[in-house]
Amino acid sequence: MRPIIKAERLGKKYYLGPRETAPPTLREALKNSLHSKVKTISGGNRSRHPSVWALQDVSFEIQPGEVVGVIGRNGAGKSTLLRILARITKPTVGKADLYGRTGSLLGVGTGFHPDLTGRENIYLNGAILGMNRSEITRKFDEIVAFAQVENFLDTPAKRYSSGMYLRLGFAIAAHLEPDILLLDEVLTIADASFQKKCLGKIKQASREGTSVLFVSHNLGAVQDLSDRAFYVHSGRLHAEGKPDTLIGNYLKDVAVQASASD
């Protein structure tokens, strides 16, 4: 079977420290550009600034219908990976090809428009996914029922509680039938009952052919859901394989580091 996601040597570099590369004001930028010739001669170029590879040399393939859990410590580069695949930010090097429509839910913010009502946000998100209105209308009731927001459909999203935000965001991302579903830390924030619902929905989506790539610190969920796991460590795809093996390795590493710092 052909993979639905193919990533080759993805890398993302961030520049740190004082933003000399991007002055905060236009006035300074203009002033600096006058000095730029002098700077180039004296070697003060961009590469001298401190930088960090948030992600480096990450290659993988994901099959249709496959559920992959991404684990790793905070700052390991898990979210950066998802942000690149969701096209929020571009990689510095490498490439990835996605052979399907991508739905994403990255963090609690969800990309709702706060001034639009729940109903309108469902249509907006559908439009972003490239769906037309009749397609969205077909899925509408299911989304609303899943998110339990029937009574708040005409309330602007900014008045939603964070739980409602999350529920509706997840419902939209999962029900609009993307071919690829990217989820970042969704399960960690949800309460127990909604978590269970999410897990069920992810399994169902996977059965219907959706590939799911999700980041979670909920190791139980990773073990329960994933066909495969990625262990990301300091920006690299440290290991990939069976979820239980990787979770074991990950916990071991965490324990070693904890005792080392004692």
């Binding site: 193919k6 690149i84 096209r87 571009k90 990689p91 490439k95 090809d97 996605l98 052979y99």
Partner: peptide, 10 residues
């Protein structure tokens, strides 16, 4: 899975 990628990330 289509023959051509829907999205190319570069």
């Amino acid at each position: 899975v289509p023959a051509e990628p829907v999205t190319r990330i570069r």
